[in-house]
Every structure is written in C-alpha cells, then in structure tokens.
Design a protein around this nucleic acid. Structure first.
Lengths: 193, 193
DNA sequence: CGATTCTTTGAAAACAGTCAATCTGTGTGG
DNA sequence: CCACACAGATTGACTGTTTTCAAAGAATCG
C-alpha cells in the first residue's frame, strides 16, 4: 500500500528513511469499490489524497442534473477538492471510483506539518501544484481554442493509456461534448482511413 | 512603485521590515506602454511578475492565427508563463499590455531564494498558487458546462470592474466565443428588459 | 479631422446538441 | 450456465446555437 506512495516520493524527491517514516505515520489507506463515493458535494474535504491503484473521477452536477467531469485520477495522481480543503467550505465537486481503487489519505493538518518540517516534501508539493496549474492553463487554452474533434483527438493522444479505461460518455463529459458527437468523430475518422 | 507591491504583501502576510527590504532589493520595475510586449512566444520566461498598475493579457496564437486569451492581469495579479519558467522551455504564451502598465519583476533565482529564506513569503506564494489552481478548475468546469450566454454573463458578473476596461472582442477571445456572439447576447438581453 | 480599431448587422452555413430507437456487450441472479 | 437486465454505444432525423463572412456603423486615438 504505502509502497506505491513511497516509490512515487523517492522518484520525485530525496527523502531520508526517517522522513519517509514520518510521512507513513500520518498516512492511511482507503479502499474504494467501483462506483464508491469518496467525496460528496456539500461535504468539507479534509485530506490530501494520492491514488495508489485504480482510477477516480472528480465531477460536478449542474442545474440540469448533468455530470461534468473536471478531472480523472489514475495511479500516481493526487485528487481532492482544493477549494474546499483550503477554505473549509462545502465541496462543489464529487469524487468517486471508476474502478476498484486504493487511495492514500493524509489529514490536512498532518499534511501541513509535513510540509513545514520536511523541506524536500514541501518543495515536491509546491512543484507539483505549480505544474498542475500550468497543465490546467493549457487545458483552458485548448478548451477555448479547439473544436470537438480536435479536443477529442488531443485527449486520446495525450492520455492514451488511461483513456482506454474510461467509458466514452465520461470522456465526453470531461471534454464538454456529447457521447453522440464522439461516436460521429470516430465514425468519420474510420471513413477517412 | 514598490509601494503597491509592499501593500499587497503586508495585506497577505506578516513580513518584517528587514524581509521587505530583502524583497525590494531584488525587485525591479518595468514600464509597459499600451500594446507593448512583455513576453513573446518562443522566448524563455525568467521572472515572477506582479502587476502594480495597468492591465496585461496572456494569450496564445493558434494555427489559424487566432489569438486566444488565457488570462488577464489587472493590478495586484501575478502574470507570466509558469511552464516556461519552471521547465526553462520556450514560452507558448505571449504577454502584452492593454493599458500603460507597471510591472514588478523578480528574477526566478532571486525569487526562489526569497521563498527559501522567508517562510512567510513562501507560504503566501504557495497559498496563492493553490488558489489559482482552484480558480482554474472552476473555470474549466464552467467552460465545459455553460453555453456562450452563460459564460458571458458569469464573466461579467464575476469581473465587472475589470471587464469594463477590456474590449469586447478580447472578452470573446477569453471565453472562446466570437465577438458577434457577444453582440447578440447583449442585444437579446436588452430586448428582454 | 483622418485613420484605425472596435462593434454591430444580416444572411448563410457549419457544428454540435437533443431525442428516441436500436444495437452491443457485460455482469448478475436464478 | 443461461437468461435477463442494464449500462454503454451507435444511428438517424431534427433542432438550435454559434460561427463565418462581408459590410456598414460607432468610437477612439493620434
């Protein structure tokens, strides 16, 4: 369980055995069955969560009841509702599991302590958040620049390995288009071949 | 010049006079005339930039030559190309000024030193980046959920004061819609009244 | 002013969404 | 192990929103 996280940490930062032990001491694992909910809209999210195994999705539900997927969380990705975590406000997102999933959780208070006492950990996290922000901005740029077809193709290219584990209609939801549109894009693509 | 930045810093964090002096020592100001370019696509972006006065925009240019605005930078906002800064790669974004603008720049190396030596500054920056990420995710959520009209209304509501300083066609570019569509949204809105 | 930039208009076309029906595959309970 | 139910994918016809293009009208700046 902790092994996966440990490998991730060692890959990204130089941490001593003692520091790893400190991190392990405040980590705990949660098993999620497929479709099980990790965070429900309206709750306050209190953790930093690392996906060791499986796949999660973060989504909101709009006025008409449509699910909109904001993010997928495959192995070695972090998940959560940052706004709720930081401000202590009710989450506007839901998180659930698309597969049987193992999530490693650290209470926010413990997490902050780790950041304050382990500089290498702090740097790792900050670098991570910065690059998440950069990725996020690229995604915004795509979503305002590209057509449905370009969005889909670019997604499939960038996320090929994970994409195969995600049902089509959820990819549609992530891209802000309809499942039917994806079907048509695929049909056109196979015609061209 | 530095006054604006100092006020911002003191508003967000408890910094001693000595710490402020350290920050000031590595800060320098750049004046931008309206339309002047701060960063050109392809250059490597090496600064952290704080807008003291005026208004900047960050945009990309797509294959067809269309400008897509990723962000506006009014007073008290940070700007730059995070990916280029972090990875040292050529910037994919351009930044220029929509008004005569004063930008305060800190070299990335100096900036990192400040983060390492002044914990309060480090926290401020990290909190800032985290909330930027949260904002960014909300924007993604909007862009995949909302119609052109909803996007526009929500933008005007959230950014009323700044919006009045931005030409319509740039708001369109920011939202990923055409200027004509905004005109029509406005026409319909005034009919309804 | 004169020139440029910005906004508005209208008509036509493209794009993507909606709805309803059918097809497919998968998993579960009997 | 089969049958059935269910979720997911595909289709086609239709609708509606948004884009595109071209032109004219405002507004702004030097």
């Amino acid at each position: 369980m902790f092994e996966d996280f440990k490998n991730y940490l060692l890959d990204k930062a130089n941490l001593t055995d003692d520091e790893l032990a400190q991190i392990e001491a405040v980590s705990f694992v949660k098993k999620l069955r497929k479709r099980q909910v990790l965070l429900q809209e309206g709750q306050v999210w209190q953790y930093n969560a690392f996906v060791c195994k499986g796949l999660t999705r973060t989504f909101s539900i709009d006025a008409k009841g449509n699910e909109r997927i904001v993010n997928f969380g495959p192995e070695n990705y972090w998940t959560g509702d940052l706004e709720s975590l930081m401000a202590g406000t009710p989450a506007r997102f839901n998180i659930d599991a698309l597969e049987d999933t193992l999530v490693l959780l650290i209470q926010h208070e413990d997490f902050k302590n780790l950041c304050n006492t382990i500089p290498a950990f702090n740097n790792l996290i900050n670098t991570l958040i910065q690059s998440s922000l950069a990725v996020s901005q690229k995604r915004i740029n795509d979503s305002i620049s590209l057509s449905a077809e370009e969005l889909y193709n670019s997604f499939m290219q960038k996320h090929a390995p994970v994409a195969n584990r995600i049902p089509q209609h959820m990819i549609a939801s992530y891209l802000g288009i309809t499942p039917e549109t994806i079907t048509r894009i695929r049909r056109n693509a196979s015609k061209k071949r």
